[in-house]
């Protein structure tokens, strides 16, 4: 091929067409969501994250939770997500408008976390699970995140946020295990993940046939 202008224009145009279709169009279509505001209570859905939960999202990213956990509930016709009880409805684009970065995920070596805050509402459960996953969930291959906790000597009263350990990881007498600041932020984020628990007009609830 010796017609250089043709080659260069073609290289540009093929790419530009995809850029328009897969970057510019999604931006126009999905880039400017506003929350749904209730007429009476003025409550906004999806609700904003707390500051602590937003910090927690960076801990979620820093430790690569995304490499095993997704955050998306597929509709009934596209998978067994609803039947597994991972949400009351599919997630839609607007559910993610409060996220700085969305962790949709591509792997389910672990279960979906879109609604983990509703499915496991206890902070205590999350702390124990992060500290000793195999004890809370037998047979799990999730790694322990002990570095999100510190072991310290009890001076005076035990701390209110010390976690109740189960064997074989019980703290020795006189010692306690408390989550670090990062640990608390991560759990705050996990507890705030309730993506398809509130109604949105574009996403009606779906009931899987039993």
């Amino acid at each position: 091929m010796n017609r250089m202008p043709l080659l260069l224009t073609g290289i540009f145009l093929t790419f530009f067409s995809a850029w328009l279709g897969l970057v510019a169009m999604p931006y126009i279509h999905l880039g400017r969501f506003k929350p749904q505001v209730d007429d009476v209570t003025r409550e906004e859905t999806p609700p904003p994250f707390s500051g602590e939960a937003l910090q927690g999202a960076t801990i979620y990213a820093a430790n690569g939770c995304i490499y095993c956990h997704s955050q998306q509930v597929r509709p009934l016709e596209a998978g067994a997500d609803l039947e597994r009880g991972w949400g009351a409805r599919r997630t839609v684009a607007r559910d993610y408008m409060r996220d700085k970065v969305a962790y949709f995920g591509t792997s389910r070596t672990g279960p979906d976390l879109s609604n983990i805050g509703a499915r496991q509402p206890s902070a205590e459960w999350h702390y124990q699970h992060l500290y000793q996953p195999q004890v809370v969930s037998k047979g799990s291959i999730m790694p322990a995140f002990k570095f999100l906790f510190e072991k310290r000597r009890i001076s005076g009263q035990p701390s209110a946020d010390a976690i109740k350990m189960q064997p074989p990881d019980e703290a020795e007498p006189g010692w306690e295990i408390v989550p670090t600041r990062e640990g608390k932020q991560l759990v705050a984020y996990l507890l705030s993940l309730k993506r398809s628990t509130y109604p949105l007009p574009e996403a009606p609830e779906e009931t899987p046939a039993k």
């Binding site: 999604p26 931006y27 999905l30 880039g31 408008m97 409060r98 970065v101 969305a102």
Partner: peptide, 9 residues
């Protein structure tokens, strides 16, 4: 951009 656009990009 908003998170929903980040997925496609």
């Amino acid at each position: 951009v908003q998170a929903a656009v980040q997925g496609p990009v």
